[in-house]
């Protein structure tokens, strides 16, 4: 587990370098990534589904990213991308593709839906954190109640 976290930190920081984030957000972005990966790994051991664990991890990562973005005056994307990268369902997406290549369409559809759900959970986490940090400022309304 410790070794996994170290590898996760290295991989996350490398990802931050690939997307060329500002230097002062490198280490912090890596730590956010490690935290979200730890949540993603630990929650299923307590009987929660992988999708739910992903959304919890993604909410945590995105909320922390917004917080640090305010603090250090850096666009939140610079923290969000390293934070959510360990959650990306790369493995499932690959096996989806493999199943389709081998002609096993049923398995491919099953894995594809799982991939979509996990990606959706990540998106939901980002949206949720954005919503928290937009309270009062407002993004999108349904009824014009203040008229």
């Amino acid at each position: 587990m410790i070794l996994e976290l170290i590898f996760c930190f290295l991989a996350t920081v490398s990802f931050a370098i690939i997307f060329s984030v500002p230097r002062n957000s490198l280490i912090l972005g890596g730590l956010i990534g490690v935290l979200s990966f730890a949540i993603f790994r630990i929650l299923p051991e307590y009987g929660m589904t992988a999708i739910f664990a992903t959304s919890v991890a993604s909410i945590t990562a995105a909320t922390l990213s917004h917080f640090f973005a305010r603090r250090f005056r850096i666009p939140a994307t610079a923290f969000t991308i390293p934070g959510i990268i360990p959650l990306v369902p790369g493995s499932r997406a690959y096996f989806t593709m493999l199943a389709f290549v081998e002609g096993d369409y049923l398995l491919g559809l099953e894995l594809g839906i799982e991939t979509m759900l996990q990606a959706g959970a990540i998106a939901a986490g980002i949206v949720f954190a954005l919503a928290i940090f937009s309270f009062g400022k407002g993004i999108g309304h349904r009824y014009e109640t203040n008229r």
């Binding site: 590898f7 991989a11 920081v13 690939i18 060329s20």
Partner: peptide, 25 residues
């Protein structure tokens, strides 16, 4: 120019590749 030299980006891709191959089992 880019914030990081291009060799560092190549190197980082390698590290990310190695790290994720371990994380994915």
């Amino acid at each position: 120019p880019l914030n990081y030299p291009i060799w560092l980006i190549h190197f980082a891709s390698g590290i990310a590749g190695g790290g994720f191959s371990y994380l994915f089992g």
